[in-house]
Nucleic acid binder design. Structure first.
Length: 396
DNA sequence: CCCTCCCGCCAGCCA
DNA sequence: TGGCTGGCGGGAGGG
């Protein structure tokens, strides 16, 4: 993971080489944020986002689902989401914390409570929005029932329970309910899966957790740490309750605001050409997919959570790096106005992201950016007041 | 080698 | 139906 230059020969032709790093979900998320986190943005069209970010629509669904569960976005309608911003995070976290306290964990296998919740929150409107959140969730305590498997939920419900969004929520709840400083994805998967032992299911879950962790990292809600060698884990950073502001800050920098003239990452967007060199498998279709698993756990989850230890009153970590984040947390560029300058800067700079927003990686990036920034501004760093606080100079 | 995780197939769902 | 969603896991990048 070192920073730039990973490909030896890539110097000049950076876009022929395929580099998954430039296409990571975390990076995409960062770009997504920088693209929409500004004044005047309220509605986001999936197609538009995909086009501007240069990725396939499928990837936007991933980002959006995760972001929504964190309160940054709210689904408005088909193909349309409304941008709430980081100011929506506290509320979302409160809700999650509250649910976690009551022991509500959306189960993986059964959709029991989910359904109930669905009725309450989901469908009609977006909760993350204004003051009202979904009503309380009384619901269950169903630990037992859940385990009892009420399979059968409609396919829809079933599907939903396995959604990235739900997984994200449960993943976050783990952090909100444990005393542990860090949680590895393995542990998280284990805890979230409870009784399920199926290895392949587990593998799939972990893949998803990687996706989630990457975007949450790019948003600075969590950060990757290396606990034991070979076993990376994530630490919850969260945010400080009152301190959050509509636009606090968050990471990311990104390519140009507008349509990327030049894509800052990922070469051809749609992976048209350079994609990985897949063998020419033309014909063979994928074998039939097997719909494995089914069990569910739930009660187990709760128990598992317990094992992690429960906290009673947590004070989230500072969301804003300025405060507590350790090093390298992030940079931000947001702020609506005055973006022009940044935009141009960004355009010329073209940062190199790294895969996930691991803090170390980010640190590299930030460092590079910072350096560049200093040069660019030649000492006079405060070009705009709002930006003075911006970070660059103080991170790291 | 094995951890990471991108890619896109394809199945439900809904207008 | 066709388009939207998004689960899922193959398999390649990369340390």
């Amino acid at each position: 993971m070192s920073s730039s230059s990973s490909h030896p020969l890539d110097a000049g032709m950076r876009h022929h080489a395929y580099s998954r790093k430039q296409k990571s979900l975390g990076l995409l998320c960062a770009n997504f944020v920088s693209l929409y986190d500004r004044d005047g943005v309220d509605s986001i069209g999936l197609d538009d986002a995909a086009r501007r970010l240069g990725v396939e629509r499928r990837r936007i669904y991933d980002i959006v689902n995760i972001m929504e569960s964190v309160g940054v976005l709210a689904r408005k309608a088909k193909n349309a989401y409304s941008w709430i911003g980081f100011s929506g995070i506290p509320k979302a976290l409160d809700r999650l914390e509250d649910e976690a306290r009551r022991g509500i964990t959306r189960s993986e296998g059964s959709g029991f409570k989910d359904d109930l919740e669905d009725e309450l929150d989901e469908s009609p409107d977006q909760y993350a929005d204004e003051g009202d959140e979904k009503p309380s969730q009384i619901v269950n305590s169903s630990s037992l029932s859940s385990g009892a498997c009420c399979k059968a939920r409609s396919a829809t419900a079933n599907r939903r329970e396995k959604s990235l969004g739900t997984l994200t929520e449960n993943f976050i709840k783990l952090f909100l309910t444990t005393d542990r400083d860090t949680i590895s994805l393995d542990d998280a998967a284990r805890l979230l899966l409870g009784a399920i032992h199926d290895a392949s299911y587990m593998r799939t879950k972990i893949r998803r957790l990687y996706d989630i962790a990457n975007v949450l990292s790019s948003i600075n809600l969590i950060e990757k740490t290396q606990v034991e060698a070979r076993k990376p884990a994530f630490r919850w950073l969260g945010l400080k309750e009152g301190k959050m502001k509509a636009d606090n800050n968050v990471t990311v920098v990104a390519p140009g605001p507008k349509k990327p003239t030049k894509r800052a990452f990922g070469t051809e967007i749609t992976n048209v050409d350079s994609k990985k060199s897949r063998p020419n498998l033309t014909a063979d279709k994928k074998p039939i997919k097997v719909q494995t698993k089914s069990g569910d756990m739930n009660e187990c989850n709760r128990v598992a959570l317990k094992q992690l230890g429960s906290k009673s009153g947590y004070a989230f970590g500072p969301f804003h790096p300025n405060g507590v984040m350790k090093r390298g947390a992030d940079v931000e560029v947001k702020c609506g106005k005055g973006v022009q300058d940044w935009e141009s800067l960004a355009a010329s700079f073209r940062p190199q992201y790294h895969n996930q927003a691991l803090s170390e990686l980010f640190a590299h990036y930030v460092e590079a950016w910072k350096t560049w920034y200093v040069e660019a501004t030649k000492g006079s760093r405060n070009l705009q007041q709002p930006f003075s606080k911006l970070v660059t100079s103080d991170l790291l």
